[in-house]
Simulated scan of single mutants.
Amino acid sequence: MSQQGRPAVVRMIPVDQIEVINPRERNSRVFAEIVDNIKAIGLKKPIVVTPRATANGIERYLLVCGEGRLKAFRALGESNIPALVVSVSDEDAFIMSLTENIARRQYRALELLAGIRDLQERGYAPKAIAEKTGLSTQYVQGILMLLRHGEERLVIAVEKGKIPLNAALSIVGAGDSDEAIQAALQDAYDSGKLRGRQLMDARRIIERRKVLGRMAGRNMPRKAPDVTSSSLVRTYQREVGRQKAMVKKAEFTQQRLLFVVGALRQLFADENFVNLLRAEGLATLPKYLAERVWPGGSAA
């Protein structure tokens, strides 16, 4: 039965009469496998569509589920495709399509992010989104909190399993203060939220987030903002802030290097220390450091 009480039936539908209401990008390798599979053994599962009347009397359909299969049929030059025809509203068709994409076993983190955002923008509460997608309410609430703060980079890290959700929320709660963020990382480590590789991944993500910003990149589907004088000023200020942060980090690194060079010069001035290093076979330095410790690049 369809969502509106009418029995769903499988029919052969012309592929050129089907409109995709929630298109998404697809991995070329995966798509090629779908095409090859359908070419070899046929369509194992029909697509799902819902009919729509048109002014000229030509029957049209909105695709609810099965975009990959539909594209494969078109790529194979097929004119008709088996489809399960259901009667649902435009809103329900979009939601069914969206949640089917989110609930797939293999999805891209950006697709999940976009799907949850779309459901929220359509007025769905976290509990309703969780019910429609099979995700936990706590997980959806956490993702939505990250999205409200524009933390797409952290959302993707969570989806890829690089860091746990509760650790990402701790990082966001720390704000923009480097000290507070480092304290949040330390707390996450002490509490067992971040250990080993995850701690290293978290540090890399925070560094990229600091330098490149919180947004994930070009692939995230979102409306292009209007360019205004104030937005240009904000963009300029953000870029200046990033440049200042890079300069500050470079200066800090240079100070550390000068400290190391000074310390090595003092140590290598001690003959007893040098003899000990020679006895252990450690009397040489990397060329970069040697050129700074000794003017000629080697011990006199």
Rank of each mutant, 00 (worst) to 15 (best):
R11V: 14
M12P: 06
P14G: 09
D16H: 12
V20T: 11
I21N: 03
P23K: 05
R24V: 15
N27G: 15
F31N: 06
N37I: 10
K39Q: 08
A40C: 13
A40Y: 08
P46I: 03
P46C: 00
V49H: 07
E59Q: 15
C65M: 06
A72H: 07
F73S: 08
A75Q: 01
N80K: 10
N80M: 03
F94C: 01
I95S: 01
M96G: 01
E100Y: 02
N101T: 03
I102H: 04
I102C: 06
A103N: 02
Y107L: 11
A109I: 02
A109K: 00
L110Y: 13
L110K: 09
E111Q: 14
D118F: 11
R122P: 07
L135V: 01
Y139H: 00
I143Q: 05
M145S: 12
R148I: 12
G150A: 06
L154D: 02
P164I: 00
A167N: 04
D178G: 15
Q182I: 13
A183T: 10
L185V: 10
A188E: 04
Y189P: 07
D190V: 15
S191G: 12
K193R: 15
R197G: 04
R197K: 03
R197H: 06
Q198P: 05
Q198L: 00
D201Y: 08
A202Q: 07
A202M: 07
A202E: 06
R203F: 05
R204K: 13
E207Q: 15
R208I: 13
K210A: 03
V211E: 04
N219T: 15
Y236H: 10
A245V: 10
K248A: 13
A250P: 00
Q255F: 10
R256H: 12
R265W: 08
Q266F: 14
N272H: 15
N275R: 06
L277I: 02
L285S: 06
K287D: 14
Y288H: 13
Y288Q: 14
W294L: 01
A299N: 08
